[in-house]
Design a protein around this nucleic acid. Structure first.
Lengths: 171, 171
DNA sequence: CCACATTACTTGATGCTTCAACTCTTCGCC
DNA sequence: GGCGAAGAGTTGAAGCATCAAGTAATGTGG
């Protein structure tokens, strides 16, 4: 049916809308977080993932995997978060080459203060537009795409177990 | 049912996957374009949208609307594209305050050379993972979300009519 | 037990995006 | 017809992401 790499009309339509969402949705969420908390979506996510981890600590590599980023990007961001007092870095006692990031109490408080507004924005922009079936479709389609993006499955495709965590960032 | 802004478990799952896709998919597409063509997804889109327009020209504001960007961002990008010889800018004869961007022949050739590889990557990462129903779900869900993001509907939600265009960028 | 590759992470430079400020033009209106 | 407001676009600075290179610690084969 499809000769060459081209998309048919239905695919084309789906792709253009997807591209538009991938442009506008992060921009909208970033704008809300920047305005209300002075945080990037990415730096918020970093804090939030730490806040859900028992002990509020994670090695840099593990944290990078849960937020789907390169170690380099995370390192720069954690440096900024550290300078603001929300995170600290300490060498791991178990292995001399790993650094563990720890969420401070101030960082925990920041997440607690920021989460509701962010969750409300996510709800407003996504879930208020979808019924139960829409939510199921979204989960299904994104799972399929993630399977292609992240064949190893090591990243956010299957999130942390979430048992026993402090869970303040339950957006 | 939902007290406060919090998401229920299904929504939470859908949101985390969506966030992961919004992180990984643009990164993957950017990587392919950067590697094969030295272009950003955004600069490619700019060229592609011009290539589909009859006359290959658009006022800056109109172009900004079709690529969902601020005028400022577009202005910077077009300046770079102009310096590479793919686009020119000229004052509109019709109104002294509008600038029209024009795709040069070299720019057209660049799009022609780049489009197949990009389309193949979009197919590989998205549509190879979806059946017909999946494509329909994706179109439906993204349309709903776009409705919230872009209430005015003025942006890429309803793309250009595409009749009579040169259509070389039919990815 | 010593080289060598690998892993974990950091750093600096470069480029892209955003934001605020600015210019210039057109429109509304009295 | 002239004055203020709004529209169209550009520019410069600051922040963030990405890439390439570098350091340091840990495995691994000989």
């Amino acid at each position: 049916m499809h000769e060459g790499p081209w998309l048919d009309d239905d695919e084309q339509r789906a792709w253009r809308r997807t591209a538009a969402v991938m442009t506008l949705l992060p921009a909208a969420l970033d704008a809300q977080l920047q305005r209300d908390a002075g945080l990037t979506q990415f730096s918020y996510l970093t804090l939030a993932m730490l806040s859900e981890t028992p002990g509020r600590t994670l090695p840099m590599s593990a944290l990078a995997a849960t937020v789907n980023s390169s170690l380099s990007r995370l390192s720069h961001v954690v440096a900024r978060l550290e300078s603001q007092g929300w995170v600290t870095r300490e060498p791991s006692p178990e292995s001399g080459r790993v650094t563990v990031a720890r969420l401070t109490d101030a960082g925990m408080e920041k997440v607690r203060a920021t989460a509701p507004g962010h969750a409300a924005e996510v709800r407003r922009l996504i879930f208020d537009a979808l019924d139960g079936e829409g939510v199921a479709s979204l989960a299904c389609v994104t799972a399929a795409i993630l399977g292609r993006l992240d064949p190893s499955g090591g990243l956010r495709a299957n999130p942390l177990s979430r048992e026993g965590a402090d869970r303040p960032a339950t957006e």
